[in-house]
Computed example of a mutant assay.
Amino acid sequence: MANDNAVQVQRSFGEHTTGTLYLVPTPIGNLSDFSPRAVDILRGVDLIAAEDTRNTQKLLTHFTIDTRQISFHEHNTQARIPVLLARLQQGESIAQVSDAGMPAISDPGQELVAACVAADIPVVALPGPNAGMTALIASGLVTQPFAFIGFLPRKSQEQKKFLTEYAQLPMTTIYYESPMRIAKTLARFAEVVGGERKIVVAREVTKKFESYIRGTVAAVAAWVADNSPKGEMVIILAPPAAQAETVTWSGEAVRAAVQDRVAHGEKPTAAAKAVAKESGWHRQDVYQEYLAEQERK
């Protein structure tokens, strides 16, 4: 785009002078979750940019897809992007896939999408499997608002700092973790947020041994430490409990507000209730302030 204030409106389908980048989600465990549209896209593009060509080849073989692949992973992103952009600009279409789930969600893809957007190359995302969202809706916790955080830092102090920031968001938060680190990570959760917050650990989502471990942070951390569950993990942390509002209204302000409402025709009890809601005072205390003021008159 010519300047930062310009608006880019890009139609996904229709006539284009370039090829299209397709972001194709792949199954996170159950091959039946791969959509017919995803199969058609992978068969129809000129090239598949895969996080791990060996893993993707198993998927391609299963669905009888013979499209050529090129590797595209976190270690060769910067070298590959110019190559992929050049092919897209020449009119070829490319599908980008990660090992499992949605491209660009804790997987390669974000930088390639940004480069395509900057070059005015159409980007089309297919809906499909995502472990975080799948686990969230089955967790039993509040589903919105939520924040997807992804993988935590591995070093303990960085992880603690990370959790201190994100676990206090006033919403459900979602994290990914490996089975090798899940016990230590949950212990860190207990240290940072306390043991009473609700939490769910979903393991092996969509696979044969899929399970949900629900409870308080302390209880789930203890269960995981004792049972050493295997498989990829999704951690879903409930939001912190709402804090009581701090009372900031003075007695004088409360009395004046009640008097004003009564003067405009409200009954004293209704006025006290309304002012209590606005001020953070208890309704009974507001009403007592009103009665005391009346006695002073």
Rank of each mutant, 00 (worst) to 15 (best):
N3T: 12
N5C: 08
V9F: 14
V9E: 10
Q10A: 13
Q10I: 13
S12Y: 07
G14R: 13
G14E: 14
E15W: 08
H16N: 09
G19E: 07
Y22H: 08
T26L: 04
N30H: 12
F34Q: 14
D52E: 01
D52A: 02
N55C: 06
Q57W: 07
K58M: 09
L59E: 13
L60Y: 09
L60S: 06
T61S: 13
H62V: 10
H62I: 07
I65N: 00
I70Q: 14
N76V: 06
T77A: 12
T77I: 15
I81S: 02
L88D: 03
E92G: 12
A100M: 09
A100P: 05
M102P: 04
S106V: 07
P108Y: 00
Q110I: 11
A119V: 09
A119D: 03
I121S: 01
M133W: 10
T134I: 05
I137P: 06
I137D: 03
A138D: 03
A138W: 06
Q144D: 07
P145C: 13
L152F: 01
S156F: 12
Q157M: 05
E158F: 15
F162D: 06
L163A: 05
E165Q: 14
Y166T: 12
Q168T: 12
P170G: 06
E177R: 00
V192L: 02
R197D: 14
K198E: 06
V201A: 04
V205K: 00
K207R: 14
E210S: 03
I213S: 02
G215D: 07
V217Y: 01
V224G: 00
N227Y: 08
S228L: 07
K230W: 10
W249Y: 10
S250E: 00
A256Y: 03
A257E: 15
P268I: 08
E278H: 15
E278R: 13
H282V: 12
Q284C: 15
E295D: 15
R296M: 08
